[in-house]
């Protein structure tokens, strides 16, 4: 079976920088973007290595603020 591949999208202005998503990613590709500040004044979450996403959806599941959506491409 081919490995699942996915894309993660962020509605970054909704992010409150709680970092919960960074703790549940099985391939460890989520981090807070220290170079960016969103409308609320937080460092929003972002993907460091999009190629590795396996579309598990854990990040979106644990996000309390509806920031994340996930699609599966393969």
């Amino acid at each position: 079976m081919a490995k699942a591949r996915g894309n993660v999208f962020f509605d970054s202005d909704r992010c409150k920088g709680c970092e919960l998503c960074t703790t549940v990613c099985p391939v460890d590709i989520l981090a807070m973007n220290r170079q960016a500040i969103n409308r609320k004044g937080y460092h929003p979450a972002h993907v460091t290595d999009p190629e590795k996403c396996i579309a598990c959806g854990n990040c979106a599941l644990v996000c309390p603020d509806l920031v994340i959506s996930v699609e599966r491409v393969a």
Partner: peptide, 25 residues
């Protein structure tokens, strides 16, 4: 295919809850 997208069961209004509060979940 879509694995996860925002539910229609909630409005577009952003929660007022503190960062990391599980009320949002």
């Amino acid at each position: 295919s879509v694995v996860f997208e925002k539910t229609k069961g909630l409005t577009d209004k952003e929660f007022h809850y503190c960062p990391g509060c599980t009320h949002g979940i």
